[in-house]
Amino acid sequence: MSGAAAREATLQKPWRSLRREREAVSFGTWVFVASEAMFFAGPLLAYAAYRSLWPEAFAAAGRETDIVYGTVNTALLLTSSLTMAAAAEGARARLRRLTLTCLAATAALGLAFLVVKGFEYREDIHKHLIPGAGFRLDMPPAQLFFAFYWLLTGVHALHLSIGIGITVTLLIQAWHGSRPLPSPAFEGAGLYWHFVDLVWIFLYPLLYLMGRS
């Protein structure tokens, strides 16, 4: 496909130039990401308020989370952001092989995160860390910590699953050639993926690094 033809196939209806379309996709995704950030800010605010009221119980509960699983998962997610950034820039530079490899690596790293998270959840359930009757710790506010733990990691895992779905869809489309590489969709998907990574960057110290010293 020649350059002009590729541009023709990429350009969607309301835009007169690929440059404008690209800016619109980035802007739209940023507005969505900003609203998602405010959504996560709600539970994080409640977490912060309760933690300031019961610091000892929160530290005792935080010690019960598994720092190894948490740290491995942080490394996996940060690396997946690297491959996603490479995929987005590769698509823009029309490097087909780099884009396909990096999209596949991103999806694989995201899946690896979910697998590790699954093992961690299994261990948490074994250790009776679910709020309610039979909870492992005596201090009632420790249950609040674990309510936030399940809520925040669960909603994050949901976002990550959606991200994996988007990445695999783009991978298939790029593989078949039904979506030309200069399409701004790769960059938009990248922005969303990096946002999910950002959420985890803040969840990691709040859920895993407490009460260790």
Partner: peptide, 10 residues
């Protein structure tokens, strides 16, 4: 970490 991601990846 967030600053690095936002500036360079995003």
């Amino acid at each position: 970490k967030a600053t690095l991601v936002v500036l360079f990846f995003m």
